[in-house]
């Protein structure tokens, strides 16, 4: 293993990858120059040296470098497969940004205020689309949403066994005490405010939110957090976790923990080919599997909020309703 002394490259070294811990995970600044292979290698090492990606999400500051789709995809794969982290966004910082290495409150505030004139690209779009940053820049780390009047322990039961009862407004165990007034009411109609129908496509529900495509099974201990939708082409095993500000779709069996609408959206859904999670969260509402032997899913299902309660329903393609 060729070890380089980190002290060899001071803050002024233009060839160094620099890492800063932020609230939403790690922020990595690429060097302006240097071979792509070495940059990717250094990126991986810098993440390890920083003690991994705590927030599960990495923001890459391209610092004026041109990153083509192939490089972006490799970076995304590297972060996901070697560090269990999602590449949250690529931003263009100022090339002479000489901020401190650690995220002191001051530097964080400064970084945020600067985002106003930074161009933010949705990762899944691979740079083809540019959009102004809106809403929270990232899924907050440690994101159990705040609920007024209800503690995190007030879990609304939403097991499959009781799903029919819950759908009619009464779970077998009833809604958790304190949860009643606190949970947002779900509007059935879509699209919501974040879902704009494209011009000339009236009637079509088109979701333009960035979407992270995870082309693998997420195993125990692996976690994906993403500011947008997450689609998994594989299973989500017990001990794995997905947190998304938008919807979560699993094209396999979901046995781990999924949190859709993590920034507070009550309209988010969790859909899976086989939905057998230990725990589900949508917006500010938490549901857990019933104790004992859970019934096995035998068809694709969707979990969503109905009248503030998490319910699991058979998946019906839109339009067939």
């Amino acid at each position: 293993m060729a070890r380089r002394d980190p002290d060899d490259r001071g803050p002024a070294d233009p060839g160094a990858v620099r890492v800063m811990a932020t609230r939403s995970g790690l922020r990595v600044r690429l060097p302006r120059a240097g071979d792509v292979e070495r940059v990717l290698e250094d990126l991986s090492r810098a993440v390890v040296e920083a003690g991994g990606v705590r927030g599960g999400a990495v923001t890459v500051d391209a610092a004026g470098r041109a990153l083509d789709a192939a490089v972006l995809r490799r970076m995304e794969t590297l972060l996901l497969e070697h560090h269990g982290a999602a590449l949250l966004q690529v931003v263009e910082g100022q090339a002479d940004d000489g901020g401190p290495e650690t995220g002191s409150p001051g530097s964080r505030a400064r970084g945020r205020s600067r985002q106003g004139h930074r161009r933010v690209r949705g990762v899944a779009a691979h740079g083809e689309r540019e959009q102004a940053p809106e809403g929270p820049a990232a899924v907050p780390a440690g994101a159990v949403p705040q609920r007024s009047g209800a503690s995190g322990e007030d879990v609304a039961a939403a097991g499959r066994a009781e799903a029919a009862d819950v759908a009619s407004g009464r779970g077998a165990e009833g809604p958790a005490p304190g949860a009643d007034g606190a949970v947002p009411v779900l509007a059935r109609a879509r699209p919501g405010p974040a879902r704009a129908a494209a011009d000339g496509m009236q009637g079509l529900r088109v979701d333009m939110t960035p979407t992270l495509l995870v082309r693998r099974t997420l195993r125990s201990g692996q976690r994906v957090r993403f500011n947008g939708n997450v689609v998994v082409l594989g299973d989500v095993n017990p001990g794995a976790e997905i947190i998304a500000s938008g919807d979560i779709v699993v094209m396999g069996t979901l046995r781990g923990v999924a949190h859709a609408g993590a920034t507070g959206s009550a309209e988010a859904i969790v859909a899976a080919f086989r939905l057998q999670p230990v725990q589900l969260r949508v917006g500010a509402v938490i549901g857990r599997a019933p104790d004992g032997h859970p019934a096995r899913a035998d068809a694709p299902e969707v979990a969503r909020l109905r009248d503030g309660a998490l319910v699991i329903e058979r998946f019906l393609p839109q339009g067939s309703e």
Binding site: E81, R219, S220, G221, N237, P238, G239
Partner: peptide
């Protein structure tokens, strides 16, 4: 569960 974690680490 632990075996699954190991498989993930070996993949990495």
């Amino acid at each position: 569960r632990d075996a699954d974690r190991i498989i993930g680490l070996l993949e990495a």
